[in-house]
Amino acid sequence: MNYGYFPGCSQTSSAKEYDLSLRKVFEKLGFGLEELCDWSCCGATSAHATNHKLSNALALRNIVLAGKQGIKNMVAPCAACYNRLITSQHEISMHPERKNETEELLSEKIPADVKVINVLELFFKIGLAKISENRKRDLNGIKAACYYGCLLVRPMNINNFDDAEQPTSMEMIAEAAGATTIDWNYKLECCGAAHSIVRKDIVLNLSKKIIDDAVLNGANVIITACPMCHTNLDMRQRAMKRKYPEHLMIPVLYITELVGLAMGMNVKDLGIDLHYVNFNYDEYIAEKLIA
């Protein structure tokens, strides 16, 4: 069964390593991902914040392409893209007038049978056993705070693969990969998201709180599944350190990178060296290969 792959803009630049690790991990797990041909931006916050017709049209253009390419299931690893795509799909499925309007705009029929899933769902489709089976390395040293951010499990009436308030799917994946996970309070709090460039003050404060809570609850790594969360949590830590000298730097990994590490891939292959906060490999991983 082939799954479509909608990378999203970040995966081509600031979140290159997410793209890299995702492709490598799933290839090794024997799961083919077929990139959506000529995909375009989902519209992101800027479109839905200012022009909802544009927002729907940009998102659904990709669904039209998927239909043409014969894709029935498509993974959108970026939580924001994922949320945009399913929200637009939900809106046209609930309101035919919105569907007609958008179809007219695109001069295309929008297929109703393209299911967009996020990266956590994709791991569950493969089966967590498959991850455990492919474990090559002991991740015991990792105490992971799984950070879902706001868009991965919301809104709950559209997106109900996991609980919208107390999700556990990412923890299950991390544990299948051999990491220890911690229970914490800020796994769904917003990092500031699209305010990353304009209101750095907001992003800095919100991200700092998230990191502090993770550290307070004993985490030594934060795991994310969203390029925007990753940018805000990883890239802003230097500024945090400058503002709050007592700030403890904590590496932020993508869930795919974590699984990749467990499967024996190295830091460079997974692009972990591209992160701002250094992931000191030896500190976390006892080099003990599992037979």
């Binding site: 803009c9 630049s13 519209g43 992101a44 916050t45 800027s46 479109a47 200012t50 304009v198 209101r199």
Partner: peptide
């Protein structure tokens, strides 16, 4: 009031309009 945020959104959409994808 937050005119910079609006400017950001406009700049963002301009990139999409031009390239179809975000050029950071």
């Amino acid at each position: 009031k937050e005119k910079d945020i609006l400017k950001f959104h406009k700049a963002f959409l301009n990139q999409i309009k031009r390239y179809g994808r975000l050029y950071e």
